[in-house]
């Protein structure tokens, strides 16, 4: 459980987010090393997505400190964190429905990636190709099916030229073949040195990519460590209410 590297790329210490009496995230410590792929599992309502929101700056945390490269970013707004290299996808895809797929990605390349018009067009085109969205580039984002909407989430996040990618259940609802394409894409990004935190219910997909696993339940970290060891943990199995997580 102890970090050997003293300087994680992104870390949160004592992170809490409360809504009234509900403690959605309750004193979570999390750290990811540069180039590492960290998986997060846990039953619904465990606070996984809320944790992502806190790391990405979608809302202020109730307590705790978030650091990027050692520097505190706890109070920075989401767009500043994006510019510093934190990109996220959303569990339920949130495309800009009034824009085309290409426009969705280009606006991200310009705003988050800090590119000028010409460079952002080139980057958007390249990313659309890499994520398999080239054929639907000029379609309205609202016309996309679920797989393409999930791909668009990834494409838009990548367009901001991130150092760390927060992936929120991008595998859910996909067929095995579609999942393989997505896994190949993430492995490719990882090979290029991308740091990844991936929330996912589909364990076999997750296990192909991640170096380390965290299991959350009721807003807390239940277990953390080597993926197989975490999944074998009695508390983790109990958190899934006896159901076989695989």
């Amino acid at each position: 459980m102890q970090m050997t590297d003293p300087r994680p790329l992104l870390s949160g210490q004592g992170l809490s987010k409360t809504y009234g009496k509900l403690r959605a995230v309750d004193g979570v410590d999390i750290a990811v090393q540069p180039g590492e792929a960290l998986g997060i599992v846990g039953p619904n309502g465990a606070g996984k997505t809320t944790l992502f929101g806190a790391l990405a700056g979608a809302f202020p945390v109730s307590a705790g400190v978030i650091r990027l490269d050692g520097a505190p970013i706890t109070t920075l707004p989401a767009h500043r964190r994006c510019a510093l290299g934190i990109a996220r996808t959303h569990q339920v895809p949130r495309p800009f429905l009034g824009m085309t797929v290409f426009e969705n990605v280009q606006v991200a390349a310009r705003a988050g990636g800090g590119l000028d018009d010409r460079a952002s067009v080139a980057r958007a085109a390249q990313i659309l190709g890499a994520t398999g969205l080239g054929d639907v580039a000029n379609r309205p984002a609202g016309a996309l099916g679920l797989l393409d909407r999930k791909r668009l989430e990834v494409a838009r996040a990548l367009a901001t030229n991130p150092r760390i990618l927060l992936l929120d259940e991008i595998g859910g609802g996909l067929t095995e073949a579609e999942l393989e394409v997505l896994i190949a894409l993430i492995l490719d990004l990882k090979a290029q040195g991308m740091t990844v935190i991936w929330i996912e219910h589909i364990l076999h997909a997750l296990l192909k990519v991640i170096d380390r696993l965290i299991c959350m339940a009721e807003g807390r970290v239940l277990a953390e460590g080597a993926p197989r060891a975490v999944m074998a943990d009695a508390a983790v199995r109990a958190a899934y209410l006896g159901s076989d997580p695989e």
């Binding site: 979608a58 707004p77 510019a83 800009f96 429905l97 705003a111 988050g112 838009r156 996040a157």
Partner: peptide, 10 residues
């Protein structure tokens, strides 16, 4: 279209 998503892409 989506203010929170817009902020998340910078």
């Amino acid at each position: 279209d989506d203010e929170e998503a817009a902020a998340s892409v910078g």
